[in-house]
Every structure is written in structure tokens, then in C-alpha cells.
Simulated assay, not measured.
Amino acid sequence: MAKVAVYMTGGIAMYKAVQVVRNLEKSGHEVRVVMTKNAERLVTSNTLAALTKYPVLDNLWKKENEASIPHVHLARWTDLALVVPATANFIAKMANGLADDAASTTILVTSAPKLVVPAMNDQMWSNPATQRNLQFLKENQVQIMEPAVGMLAEGYAAKGRMPETEQISAWVENFLQQEEILKDKTIIVTAGGTEEAIDPVRFIGNRSSGKMGISIAQAAAEMGAKVKLIYGNVTVALPQDEKIELYHTASSEEMLTKVKHEFAKSDVLIMAAAVADWKMAKVADHKLKKQAYQATLKLTLVKTKDILREVAKHKNPGQLVVGFAAETNDLLKNAEKKLHEKGADLIVANDVSQNVFGNDNDKVTILKQDGTIDEWPEMSKKVIAKKLLIYVNNFMHK
């Protein structure tokens, strides 16, 4: 059962949102409520406090809150944040990071998954500003429930009506079940670039930021998996989650050793790291000094061991290997070749010719051994991560 924070904003559908709270409680969830001042013009906070047996958060400046930070405490407590009904105003605040009352401040510091149930006049709903805000939220993993077509408060039928409470409750339950689809699975994710030493000071590296691999690791943990994140050189913050074990490896050889060791007791390997194809034939034991007469420097490189191929050829029935193909030309041709030569179950191909390294968005294509190709539109790496893990879960249970 989940800890659900329900955010109620000032829409006429407030009266139906009370039943959503009751439904959540009947399903065994622990519920706490946050209300805007406009919401309290329609339904009193006393009603919700009586239902949940817990004070409603509606004011950060009450006397009893002077010695505490209630919005942060509630944000940390929350497993799921549900905004119902969500007005156009509150959606705009969420999309633009505004924090001018208890509700907007609390949801801004909440890292838990967020579900939003819009309810408003049809013209507000179709306004380009509202649609732009909704699209931004979707791109940042906020789930939006489409409003229904029905009788509005204005007295005519149009799109904007809040769905029935049973539909909302079923939607929430379905989301919570999906959140745990990787429960009892152990997933290895590699991220970042490897470093192949030239001498004690210099190394051969690449431009990988590690953002995609880290997004996948975080999404897998959120979906219930035990995650082992094996990372090289990264330029973004590492996740801090008790479900994610962190292992740093510098070179491709170190990463291979760690991946092979951990994969023996794991279900899935997702190789998102940018592993060097070449390394020094011999690493200098001292810094290679530049000489006055020297115009060039010749380095002798040898191939590194291919981690994807090495692991894929030893995988057991039931284990899944997913590789990434970062290409600058002939994307599908090169990705398909990599898929068959390396024995991976899936290849995630992306075009890196436009310098996607470190960016928040990407565009990928999924290739399977049976020849199936699924081309996805450009989206945030966080959304790609979650969608990929759902794809992986469906693949394992086909």
C-alpha cells in the first residue's frame, strides 16, 4: 500500500475529489491532503481532516508550523502525489516551478511520481498555454489523465469535465501496480565513458555524460528493481537511492570484470556506457614529456574486449542483454550489424552526430533479433528510460 498525498485545487469538481480520497483509503492507502485556499472555498479542510484523521496542509505560516518545515516533511513522506482536481492555474504553477502557497511549494519539493487530473472549462483546456504546460509536464514524467467530455459547470457539454471517481481510482491503482513491475528483478546498468590510460596523467576518453544510464538506473529503482549501477567517467550527479548500488570503474577492462561478476546473479544488463574501442598497447609508467624537437606523438593502440559480446555469449536462459549503439551515420545499418554480431537481445540506437551528449532529450530506435524495429519520437531521457524498462519487462514476459 502507498502513501498518497492528494492535492486539491479550486475547481468546482472538488466535491467529487472527496470521494477519490475515500476510495484510496478503502483500497488501504494512507492519505494526506494538501489544499489551496480556493479549494477551501468549495470544501472545507475540516471535511478532509475528518476523513484522513490527519491535519490538512493549507498554510505554511500557521502557529503550529513555526518550529517545523511541513512541506518538506510531507514531500519526503509521499510515495505518490495526486492532483485532483487540477486547475489550469495549478498546472501552470507546476510547469513553471512556482511556489507561492502551501500546495505549490510542497509539490515543487516532491520527488515522488506525480499524477494530475485536470478539470476545467473547455476553452481553458484548449488554450495553447495550458496545452504547452501539460506537454512540458508529460515530458518530465508527470502522468496526465485526459478530462472527459460531458456537462460542464457552465451548462453545456464539452471536453474538460473531471472523469468519474471510479475511473480516477482505477487509473491510480493501475499506475501503482505498474510502478512495481520490476519488483524482485536485479538489473545492471552501465553509464558514462571509460578512461584508457596513456600515462599516469592522461587518458583516452569520450564525451558521454552518463545521463542516459543514470536515468535508466533511477527509473528501474522507482519500478521496484534492485539496481547495480556500474559507471565510468560521468558529468552528472549520481543517484542516491537505497535500491541502487554504485560501482565505479575507470577502464573498459575494469568495467568488463565487474559486469561479468555481477551479471552472473542478475536478470538484465543494460549497457548504456560508452566503452572505449581502443586502449594503449602499453601504458607509460611516467608522464610523457613534450620535447622541444618533437612535432608529433605516436600512440600504439590495441582493441579492447567487447563487454556486450563477452557477456551476451555467456548469458543463461531468462537473462536479457540490452546494448546501445551510438552512431554518427548509417544508424540502422550499423545498429543492426551490432545487434547480430554481439548477440544482444535488444539494441537501442541513437544518432549522436548532433551532439546529444549531456542533453536532456534524445531520439532512439529499438531493434530486436526478429527484425522488429520500433522508432520512438524525441523525448526526454527520463521518459525514454521509463519507456525502455516497460519495453524490457514486456519482452521478458512475452
Rank of each mutant, 00 (worst) to 15 (best):
F203W: 09
L238N: 01
N206Q: 04
E195A: 15
Q218S: 15
V109G: 00
G213S: 02
N233K: 15
Q177S: 13
S209V: 07
G150Y: 02
Q123E: 10
S126A: 11
K138F: 11
Q141W: 15
A217K: 11
Y156A: 09
A225P: 03
N133C: 03
F175W: 12
G155Y: 14
P239H: 10
V149T: 12
A153P: 11
E245Q: 14
S169P: 07
E222T: 07
Q178C: 13
L152K: 02
K228F: 11
A191E: 06
Q167P: 06
S208H: 07
S251R: 04
K114H: 11
A158F: 14
T190M: 15
R207H: 12
R161T: 01
A170P: 13
M145Q: 02
V201N: 02
A119I: 10
F136R: 12
A153I: 09
V189E: 08
V201T: 04
W171F: 15
E154H: 13
G155A: 04
A170K: 14
R202W: 06
E222Y: 14
A217V: 01
R202F: 10
A158D: 13
P200H: 08
I230T: 02
W125G: 00
D184L: 14
T235H: 08
I188H: 00
V117N: 02
K228A: 06
Q178D: 12
V116P: 03
V236Y: 02
F136A: 13
N233A: 11
G232E: 07
P200C: 09
L115Y: 06
Q177F: 13
I168W: 15
Q123L: 14
R202P: 00
F175E: 05
M124S: 09
Y247S: 02
S209L: 15
N121S: 07
V236R: 03
E222C: 13
N121I: 04
G150V: 00
A217P: 05
L108W: 04
R132M: 15
A158T: 06
A148H: 10
A237W: 10
G160V: 03
D122I: 10
Q218G: 08
A157E: 14
T235K: 11
N233Q: 10
Y231G: 01
Q135F: 08
N133R: 04
L137M: 12
G205A: 08
R202Q: 01
S111K: 14
P239L: 10
L152N: 00
G205M: 02
A129Q: 10
M151P: 11
G210R: 13
M124C: 05
Q123R: 12
M223P: 00
P147S: 08
D199E: 13
K138M: 09
A197Y: 04
E245C: 12
